[in-house]
Amino acid sequence: MSVSALGTILGIWAHPDDEVYLSAGLMATARDAGQRVVCVTATLGEHGTGDPVRWPPARLAAVRAHELRASLAVLGVTEHHVLGLPDGGCAEQGEAVVDRLAAIVDQVRPDTIVTFGPDGFTGHADHQAVSRWATAARKRAAPNARLLHPVLTYEFLARWQDVYDRIDVFLADGLPHAVPAAALSLTVPFGDALADRKLVALRAQATQTSGLVTLLGEQTMRDWCATEGFVDAGPVSDRVWASWRPAAGRLPGYAAWDHQC
C-alpha cells in the first residue's frame, strides 16, 4: 500500500510533537501528492517540562502552540484543530470529547484516520485515551474510514537498541509492542530530503526536542526518526495488542524527550 491510497488523512494525537515523531513523513508525502491532511491535537502539553519554574504551564502551552504551527507548516499541513484539554488529564475526560471528535470526523470526512494503538505507543495515559476516543469517533462518524496505528518493527528495535538504551521512552512494562516488518500495512519511504524535512519539523518543536538532539547528535536523531510504519486496525493490530493491559509502570507520565527543555 502507498500513501497515495490513503486519500484524505485525519491524524488524532494527544500532545504537540506526537504527530511529528510518528507521522511527519506520512503527512509530508501526502501533502506533496495533493492529498488533504488534517491534524487534531488534544492538549498543548503544558506540563511537558522538567523545569516548571522556567516553563510555567501557561507559558509553555503558548510556546508549544507556536512550535506546533511551525512544525506542521514544514510538512505542508495547514488544517489543525486543538481541543484544549488538560495535559495529563485526558483519561478523566468524558463522552463529550468523543462528541467533539465525531463532529470533526464528520466535517473532514477522512478516508484514513491515524492515531495511537491501544497502548498509546509509549504507554502514556493521554495517548491511550486519545486512541479510545478516535476509535469511538470513527465508529460513530466514519465507520468505513481506514484506521491506522503506528508501530515499531523488531528489525527497527534491533538496529536502534543503543538509542533506546540511552533514553527513557516507554512508560509501562512490556513496551514497546512490535511486529515483523512483513506485517506492516504501510511503510513510508524515506529518502534524504524527507529525512531532512522531518528533522526540521522536529527541531521546530524545540522545547521538546532540542535536548534530545543534543543528547543523540543531529545525524543520529535524523536517521533514527526516518522510519514510519503502520498497521491497520483489525486482525494484525488486534494480535499486536491482544495482551495489552495498562501496566503498573509510571502512568501517567512523559517520555524522555518531554524533559529535554
Rank of each mutant, 00 (worst) to 15 (best):
L175N: 02
E92F: 11
P246M: 00
S237H: 05
Q161Y: 06
R64T: 02
S2W: 04
H66L: 05
F190R: 06
A226E: 02
R54N: 07
R197Q: 01
F116T: 00
L202N: 14
A24C: 10
P143D: 07
C261R: 07
T209L: 11
R64Y: 10
R36S: 10
F170C: 08
L215G: 09
P56H: 11
A142L: 09
V53S: 09
Q35L: 12
L147C: 08
A181M: 13
T214N: 09
V231G: 02
R64M: 11
G249M: 09
I104F: 14
W160V: 09
T135C: 06
A129N: 09
D162Y: 01
W244S: 10
A65M: 10
R245T: 14
D126E: 10
A142W: 11
T135K: 10
D99V: 01
R146Y: 01
R245F: 11
A62R: 08
Q161C: 04
D192L: 10
G11R: 04
S237W: 04
W133G: 00
E46P: 12
S2C: 08
L22P: 00
D17L: 07
G76R: 04
L60N: 06
R203E: 15
A73D: 12
E67G: 15
W224V: 04
D162E: 14
G234D: 11
R222H: 03
V3N: 02
T8L: 02
S23I: 03
G120D: 12
E155S: 12
V213P: 03
L85N: 04
C261S: 14
Q93W: 15
A65T: 12
P118R: 00
Q107Y: 15
G89K: 08
C225K: 14
A158V: 12
C39L: 14
G234S: 10
A255V: 05
L202Q: 11
G89W: 13
C261M: 13
Q35I: 03
A102L: 05
S23P: 14
C261G: 15
D32A: 12
Y254A: 00
E155Y: 12
G191F: 13
P52Y: 14
V151S: 01
Q260I: 02
R140V: 15
D18N: 03
A5R: 07
D32S: 13
T214H: 13
F121A: 07
T8Q: 05
E79R: 12
L202I: 12
A181N: 12
A158L: 15
S237Y: 06
L148S: 00
V74Y: 09
L216M: 07
A206N: 15
A233P: 06
L60H: 11
L199E: 08
V98E: 11
P52W: 14
P110G: 12
R54V: 02
L194K: 03
A182W: 13
L85Y: 08
W160G: 03
K139I: 08
D165T: 01
M1R: 01
A102H: 01
Q35G: 13
V236R: 00
S210E: 12
A182F: 13
V169P: 03
A62D: 10
G217D: 06
S185P: 00
A195Q: 07
L44W: 05
G45V: 07
T112N: 06
V240L: 12
Q205G: 12
A62I: 04
T187D: 15
G76M: 04
A178R: 09
T49D: 03
L157K: 01
Y154I: 15
A129C: 10
F121L: 13
Q205R: 15
W133F: 11
V40F: 08
A102I: 00
